[in-house]
Design a protein around this nucleic acid. Structure first.
Length: 460
RNA sequence: GGCGCGGUGGCAGAGUGGUUAUGCAGCGGACUGCAACUCCGUGUACGCCGGUUCGAUUCCGACCCGCGCCUCCA
C-alpha cells in the first residue's frame, strides 16, 4: 500500500506521488517568536514530525524545512513592552521553541530558515511580481493584486466576493481592491526595516514563506503543512505569491496539509482568546512524551479537546506500553526487516491514522506480554519500531518509570533503602510494617510491585 | 450572508452496507500474605426524522445541536 494524504486544495485524499522520488520536499510553518508556544502550536510540529518519520521510511532523501518568523509586529510589540531589542526577544523565544521541540521528541528539520536572513529572496520575489503585473506600489507599500490571479481563492475554496462580504476589517485606503494584501510595508525610523527599491520597510507576513521555499527548496515542493487557521489568508496568499512568481506553470505545492484545532472546553485554543496552556508550563507536570501521545491520540485533521483527562489517559497508555517493554528488558530486539505488512505502518500510511497505529501498539504490547521466549525479540523489535515512527517508547523503561517530572520528591536511594527494609519485614512475616512502607511510599507517588524476581518501583 | 467541519458506549477515539476496533475507567475471575502489574472473561454505542435496501451507525434528503474560517492566530 502506498502513502495517501488528504489534500486541502482538492478536499480529498490522494495517493502521494512526489515530484522527485529521490528528493521529497516538505515545508511547515513554524512559530512567530514573540512568546512561548502553546500546546495548540505544538500540534503541527508533532504531526508533521510524524509524517517526516514516515516519509523517511519511503524515500532516500526527505528535505524538511520549518521556518522561524523573527520579524513581525507582535515581536516588535513584545520588545517594546519588555524594553528589549527585537533580536533579543526573537532569540530568546527561538531557543525556548527549540527546547520545547526537543521535549516533544521531534526530530530536527533539515533546515530552519529565518525571515530576517532571507530578505534578498523576498525582495527579488516582490520585484518579479511587480514586473509581471501581479503587484503594485502605493504609498510606500507594495501590494499583491489578487484580481490578477484567475484562481485566487482556490486553496481555501472561496470566491473574492464571498470573502469581502464577511470582511470585518477596514480596508486600507491605498488598496486598489479590498482583498489585496501587503508584500512590503514601510517602517518608521525607529522601527526595524531594510532598504529596498520601495523604501525603508519590512516584508508582509505571507512573503517570507514563499520566498524561503523558493530559495531553499525550489519553485515547487511536495508538501506544505500547518494549522487549519493558516489556510486563509496565509497559505492562500503564499500560493498566490509563489504561483505568480515561479518559473513555468503548475502548482507550487502539490499537497497542502492542515491539522485541526486543539480545543479547550469545545472552543479553539488561541492566544487571542487567552484559553491556552503553554508547552513550557505543561512540561512542569507532564513528560513531553505524554504531551506528544495526547496530541497523536486523535487523527490530525480532527479537533481534539485538550483536558486533564486526555493527559491522564495518555500517561496510562504509555505506562502500560513501557510495562511490556520492562518485562523484556533483557531481550535483544530484532529490527523488523520489512514494515509493509505491519498494521501500524499501514495505518500511518493512510493519512497518518495515529489512533489506529496506537491501537496496534497496544496489540503488539499485549502479544509481547503473552509471547513465548523465541517470539519476544521479533515482537519487541516491532513495538519499538512502531513507537519510533510516532516518536514514542525511545526511553528505557527504567528512565520512564523512575525519572519524575518537576519536583523530584523522595530520592531513588531512599526508595531503595525502604524497599530493603520492607523485604526484611516480609521475610519476618511482619506484613503490617511491609504494608506501612508501601502506603507511605504510595503517598509520595511511588508504587511498589512485588514479583518472583523481587520488588520493583515506579513513580506515578 | 458565503464557505467548511463535526455529533459514536461512562470518557477518549477509529471504522464499516450485514460478522459492531482500541485504550482508559467499571465489573467478575486467575495470580498475590495483601496489593500492584499481567492474563482470562465482561460493554449490542453510533444526534433526530424520513427515504433507498433483504438489511444503515455507514448511502440519500430534511431537521436539530456544536465548532471553525471570511485578512492577529498552529
Amino acid at each position: 500500500m502506498s502513502l495517501t494524504l488528504y489534500n486541502t486544495r482538492l478536499r480529498r485524499k490522494e495517493v502521494f506521488q512526489p515530484l522527485n522520488p529521490e528528493r521529497v520536499t516538505m515545508y511547515v510553518c513554524g512559530p512567530t517568536v514573540y512568546n512561548f508556544i502553546h500546546i495548540g502550536n505544538a500540534r503541527p510540529a508533532v504531526v508533521f514530525d510524524t509524517l517526516y518519520r514516515v516519509l523517511k521510511t519511503l524515500y532516500p532523501e526527505v528535505v524538511y524545512a520549518r521556518n522561524i518568523t523573527d520579524i513581525d509586529d507582535k515581536i516588535m510589540k513584545a520588545a517594546k513592552d519588555n524594553n528589549e531589542s527585537i533580536a533579543d526577544v526573537a532569540e530568546r523565544f527561538t531557543q525556548a521553541y527549540l527546547e520545547d521541540m526537543v521535549s516533544l521528541n521531534t526530530l530536527s528539520p533539515d533546515m530552519t530558515p529565518k525571515a530576517t536572513e532571507n530578505l534578498e529572496p523576498m525582495q527579488s520575489m516582490i520585484a518579479t511580481l511587480i514586473e509581471r503585473g501581479h503587484a503594485y506600489e502605493a504609498e510606500g507599500h507594495v501590494l499583491f493584486a489578487v484580481q490578477s490571479m484567475p484562481d485566487y481563492g482556490k486553496l481555501s475554496n472561496r470566491s473574492l466576493e464571498d470573502m469581502l462580504d464577511g470582511a470585518r476589517v477596514e480596508v486600507a485606503p491605498y488598496k486598489k481592491y479590498a482583498g489585496d494584501f501587503v508584500l512590503w510595508k514601510p517602517s518608521a525610523e525607529d522601527e526595524p526595516g531594510w532598504d529596498s527599491p520601495w523604501g525603508y520597510g519590512r516584508p508582509g507576513w505571507h512573503l517570507e514563506c514563499s520566498a524561503m521555499i523558493k530559495a531553499h527548496l525550489g519553485d515547487r515542493i511536495d508538501i506544505h503543512g500547518g494549522g487549519r487557521d493558516l489556510i486563509f489568508p496565509h497559505h492562500e496568499n503564499e500560493r498566490a505569491q509563489s504561483c505568480c512568481s515561479q518559473h513555468g506553470e503548475g502548482e507550487f505545492v502539490q499537497y497542502w496539509m492542515h491539522n485541526g484545532y486543539l480545543n479547550i472546553d469545545g472552543e479553539k485554543m488561541s492566544k487571542s482568546l487567552g484559553n491556552f496552556r503553554t508547552v513550557r508550563d505543561l512540561l512542569g507536570q507532564y513528560k513531553g512524551e505524554v504531551l506528544r501521545f495526547a496530541l497523536l491520540s486523535a487523527q490530525y485533521r480532527s479537533e481534539l479537546d485538550f483536558s486533564r483527562e486526555l493527559l491522564a489517559q495518555a500517561k496510562a497508555s504509555l505506562d502500560s506500553l513501557y510495562t511490556s517493554l520492562k518485562e523484556v528488558d533483557g531481550v535483544v530486539a530484532e529490527a523488523p526487516q520489512n514494515l509493509s505488512d505491519a498494521p501500524f505502518y499501514q495505518a500511518l500510511l493512510d493519512d497518518l491514522n495515529t489512533p489506529i497505529a496506537i491501537a496496534e501498539l497496544h496489540q503488539l504490547a499485549k502479544a509481547l506480554n503473552k509471547a513465548a521466549d523465541e517470539e519476544k525479540p521479533r515482537l519487541k523489535g516491532l513495538l519499538l519500531k512502531a513507537g519510533e515512527l510516532m516518536g514514542f517508547l525511545q526511553e528505557s523503561p527504567e528512565q520512564w518509570f523512575k525519572q519524575g517530572v518537576g519536583e523530584q520528591g523522595i530520592s531513588a536511594e531512599e526508595v531503595e533503602a525502604l524497599i530493603a527494609e520492607r523485604v526484611q519485614a516480609k521475610k519476618d512475616r511482619n506484613f503490617a510494617r511491609a504494608d506501612e512502607i508501601r502506603e507511605s511510599l504510595k503517598a509520595q507517588g511511588v508504587v511498589l510491585e512485588d514479583s518472583r524476581e523481587g520488588t520493583s518501583w515506579r513513580r506515578e
